[in-house]
Computed example of a mutant assay.
Amino acid sequence: MTKTISVILANMSITKSALLLIDIQDGLDELGYYGGQRNNPDAEGNCRKILDLFRAKAWPIFHIQHNSTNADSPLHPSKPGNQTKSIVAPLANEPVIGKSVNSAFIGTDLKNRLDAQNITDLIIVGLTTEHCVSTTARMAANMGYKVIIISDATAAFNKVGIDGESYEAEVIHLTTLATLKDEFAEILDTQRLLER
């Protein structure tokens, strides 16, 4: 009987979650560079609530930092905007993974780090919903991770359409989440995640 239980336990898939904080950097406050309008001003505060939970539980945390190759970008490594916002600044024991494209998996060792810790589920927060959050979530899902995006811990910028029409940041945010929902990720808000 004991042997049977041991075999069952050995074959069980144990869920293990990690938090990915995507590109929460000072340079993204330069609204003029990114289009002049951003939604969800409380996103960073909600990111901090989730970060505090993961720290309290000693669960895996990964800070993703965008190092733009465009010298004019506020996120270029030579610019002060490249720094992580103080509200979610990494602690000494929390890894910071630099990237230069939208996906946190391209040109980085993120997947190796996740797999080394047997991570199965990713909680994704950060900036921006339509770019690096979306791209990272799609790749993560394609790689077999269960992805949860926290809707009020992400934010988007307004966009100009193909015929010059304007789309407000909230529309971009909600539309992006709609394209990710169910196909690539489960969408929760901060309160629902914390209640879990």
Rank of each mutant, 00 (worst) to 15 (best):
K159I: 01
I187W: 06
L180Y: 06
S151D: 10
A92G: 11
P90I: 09
L75D: 05
M1W: 05
V147T: 11
Y145D: 00
L19R: 11
K79W: 00
G161N: 01
G144C: 09
I8T: 12
M12T: 15
R138T: 03
D189C: 15
D29S: 15
S13H: 13
D182Q: 12
K16Q: 10
A10Q: 07
Y33D: 06
D52L: 03
A155H: 02
F105D: 02
T176F: 04
L188I: 02
M143H: 08
G161L: 00
S68P: 05
V160K: 05
K181F: 06
S166W: 00
N142G: 13
L75T: 06
L21G: 10
R192S: 14
R113A: 13
N118V: 00
L75C: 05
I187C: 15
L91W: 09
L114C: 14
F54M: 13
P74L: 15
D109Y: 02
N118P: 01
M143V: 00
L31Y: 12
T2V: 01
G36V: 10
A141E: 03
K159H: 09
F105I: 02
F184Y: 13
D189T: 10
T176K: 05
I61E: 00
E195L: 10
D115W: 00
A56V: 06
L91M: 15
N142H: 07
L51W: 12
G126A: 04
P90N: 13
D109K: 05
N70D: 12
L122C: 13
R55Y: 04
V125W: 03
A10V: 02
L75N: 04
H76C: 01
S103P: 11
L20N: 09
L31I: 08
L188G: 08
Y167H: 12
S6G: 01
I119M: 11
Q25M: 06
E195R: 06
G107M: 12
A89R: 11
L174P: 04
N40T: 03
A137G: 13
E183T: 14
M143G: 00
K16A: 06
G98D: 06
T84H: 08
T69Q: 14
A104L: 03
E186L: 15
Y34Q: 12
H173L: 03
T2A: 02
P80D: 03
S6F: 01
Q117G: 04
T176A: 04
A18E: 10
N93Q: 14
A169H: 01
P74C: 14
E94G: 15
A18W: 08
T128I: 07
K57H: 03
I8D: 13
I97F: 05
E44S: 13
P60W: 00
P77V: 01
T135F: 14
S134G: 04
I172A: 01
L20G: 13
E130L: 05
